[in-house]
Design a protein around this nucleic acid. Structure first.
Lengths: 210, 210
DNA sequence: CGTGTTCTGTGAAAAGTTTCACAAAATGGC
DNA sequence: GCCATTTTGTGAAACTTTTCACAGAACACG
């Protein structure tokens, strides 16, 4: 799509989101410059990795004077594509779904959750953290009407694949999947899995070994 | 700790958890052997990566006859350390905390959530998915009494660092952090962050580009 | 205006991970 | 029992990511 984008290493991109957050807080304190070692401390990595990452997004610091916070913010936001907003829906308004709705309502700039869906009658037509929950029957209609491109799946495992198929058929091209299954979808759909189980097992594995 | 463990690449380890899940389902269908390409299909990766990963955990297949499912299950469980159970607590019983409690109550074999904690009086002494929520004042006591080593943080961002410090002071050595901050903790503590924001921004970035 | 110090930017090495490609083994059909 | 086929196991190549190490720029201070 954009030349610059393609060149950014995946891992760097993941960290970039974190950097944006750090810089927002840092700037809120009225600070205007920051050194790579300060940022590394805040981000939990090394100064030299910070500098590489900043290079990737076209941030130039100046020797001895560090990096200009505002310029970095602008660059990072431009790299992450903050100029365009992506319409998003969430399906499955259980505890997890609700938690995520409250998360997104005020924290993710470029992603707008336009609607939520569920099958349970008692959830339908309620508004959670500013997002209305609709009957899942209306899903395809709303996706089309509002040009929704991203979907968040927070339904039980058994229902995830069928739901994902429906989302893709309706035109969704990016999915955040919280169900513990591997979704089998066409190549043009970008899927990320949030595997809570995996993370906790990883901690169980590595903790107490250092 | 264990010689075999150290040699397993991090990424392979992450996938191992997924493999366990896949094999559990696969075995439940009464199947006893599986080929690397079948498993790759189920796991969403390539046959050759599968074979490498299986090598790392000491699984040997036999030419033309594939891998023995039960043997793989045993090996993976032994690599992941399923013989010992780790005591875990969760702090912050909001929507996210509740969602995670229901997740863990029946899905993660080696990790046992022994207690939850919150500050809100209306949450205290309630039982969520089999786990009792206690007053956070009792936290240190329960950690010590029950030899808890892992902690899951699902409190608001502002409270996360102070909470993490308390957990570490009480003896916790592994933390799963859902708050969108970088925790600053001693080296001996293993921390994993679940950064929901990051994942959705990543999807927004990559989707629609393939 | 010169010297010492503290930064950045970056080539190059190192470390980590995935993919390729093919030999060797096992199976089934004939 | 032999040939064609399928599948594993694995060296080696390719690729990705991190770390090292240091030249050069900028500033502070005398």
């Amino acid at each position: 799509m954009n030349k610059t984008r393609k060149e950014i290493p995946v891992n760097t991109l993941e960290r970039m989101v974190k950097y944006r957050r750090i810089l927002d807080n840092y700037a809120a304190d009225g600070k205007t410059i920051i050194y790579s070692h300060e940022m590394a401390k805040l981000a939990g990595n090394t100064p030299s990795q910070m500098r590489r990452d900043l290079m990737s997004c076209g941030c130039a610091g100046s020797t001895r004077a560090g990096y200009n916070v505002q310029e970095m913010q602008t660059n990072i936001k431009s790299v992450l594509g903050y100029s365009e907003t992506k319409q998003t829906i969430l399906v499955g308004v259980g505890n997890l779904g609700k938690a995520i709705l409250s998360y997104f309502s005020f924290r993710v700039p470029r992603v707008q959750v336009v609607a939520a869906f569920d099958v349970m009658p008692h959830r339908i037509d309620r508004v959670i953290s500013g997002t209305r929950c609709h009957d899942i029957k209306e899903m395809e209609t709303i996706i089309k009407e509002q040009s929704v491109t991203l979907g968040i799946i927070t339904v039980p495992r058994e229902e995830a694949q069928a739901l994902a198929d429906r989302l893709v058929a309706a035109g969704i091209v990016g999915i955040l999947n919280f169900a513990p299954v591997t979704l089998d979808l066409p190549d043009h759909v970008y899927v990320e899995n949030m595997d809570i189980t995996m993370k906790i097992e990883k901690i169980a594995f590595y903790s107490g070994e250092k």
